[in-house]
Structure formats: structure tokens, C-alpha cells
């Protein structure tokens, strides 16, 4: 095993957890972790190994900060972030989302897909699942909801 792979194996988990703590999203944290190790790969000759993992954390933090600045200006977040600090209580959830027979993961999939309008692939990226897994959770959730939801026409 060469010195890069040794360093990678040693620091991967810590770098990923750090990235996840900064961005809260599994897919983005994975990208940031890959970015950081790519930089390490390119600059292996110039970096003293005792500077790790701090050097990797610096790369991750800088990239995450850039990303957070971009997110602040995007439509999906800018409106909320710019608002006055009033925490308006949300109206009551649709009954089906609270249905007893749903598993927690099914509920998360339902909320991302049907409430927030995430596509299956967007939800899968955020949940660290394959699209097939998300589809499966949605499928089983609907199977359960079919017996619960009233007024489904036909």
C-alpha cells in the first residue's frame, strides 16, 4: 500500500464525519471528502504527513464555506434565511404522514418526495441510498397508505 492509500485509509472516516458536520448532507459530504483527498493526491509530494488530517480539514472547510455561501443565495433557501425571526407554527400535517404503520425511513421518503418535491434521485442522494431503495420505501409506504387514505377515486 502506498503512502497515499495509507493516509486515505487512516483519515477517510474522520474527514467524512467532519464534512458531514459542516454540511449536514451525506452526498455533499462525500463530494467534499473526495475533493479533499484529490487535493492530497495531487500534492502528496509537498505535504508533510504529520500535517494530516488538519490539512484535509482545511480543504473541506473552505469548500464547505463556498458551498454554504452559494446555498444562501439560492431560491430554495434565500427566502427563509432572509426572513424576520418569526417561527410560525406549521399547519397540521396530512393524516397519512402520521400513519402508525409507516416506518421512520418511509416517512422521511414520503416527506422529501411528496411534500418537498424531491425527485427519487434527489432524495436518494441525500439519504445515501440507491434510487431503487428509495423507490422501494415509497412503494411499501403507498401499499400501506392505500388501506388508510380515504377518497382515492376509482
Amino acid at each position: 500500500m502506498d503512502s497515499f492509500e495509507t493516509a486515505y485509509r487512516q483519515h477517510f472516516a474522520a474527514v467524512f464525519r467532519f464534512a458531514a458536520s459542516l454540511v449536514g448532507r451525506r452526498d455533499v459530504a462525500e463530494d467534499l471528502t473526495a475533493d479533499a483527498f484529490l487535493e492530497l493526491h495531487r500534492h502528496m509530494d509537498e505535504i508533510r504527513l504529520h500535517e494530516l488530517p488538519a490539512w484535509l480539514f482545511v480543504v473541506v472547510r473552505n469548500r464547505a464555506r463556498d458551498r454554504w455561501r452559494r446555498l444562501q443565495t439560492e431560491e430554495r433557501s434565500a427566502r427563509w434565511l432572509a426572513k424576520e425571526p418569526v417561527a410560525a407554527p406549521a399547519p397540521a400535517s396530512p393524516q397519512w404522514l402520521l400513519s402508525e404503520g409507516l416506518s421512520p425511513v418511509q416517512r422521511v421518503c414520503l416527506e422529501l418526495h411528496y411534500v418537498w418535491g424531491f425527485t427519487v434521485s434527489e432524495a436518494a442522494a441525500r439519504l445515501g441510498m440507491t434510487e431503487g431503495q428509495v423507490k422501494g420505501h415509497l412503494q411499501r409506504a403507498r401499499l400501506h397508505l392505500r388501506t388508510v387514505v380515504k377518497g382515492v377515486p376509482r
Partner: peptide, 12 residues
């Protein structure tokens, strides 16, 4: 939005 919500604990 959920993408903002999940950043709640972030130092950024």
C-alpha cells in the same frame, strides 16, 4: 427547506 434545516449544527 430541508437542505437548510440539516445545516443546523454546522459551524459555518
Amino acid at each position: 427547506h430541508p437542505d437548510v434545516l440539516v445545516a443546523r449544527g454546522s459551524e459555518l
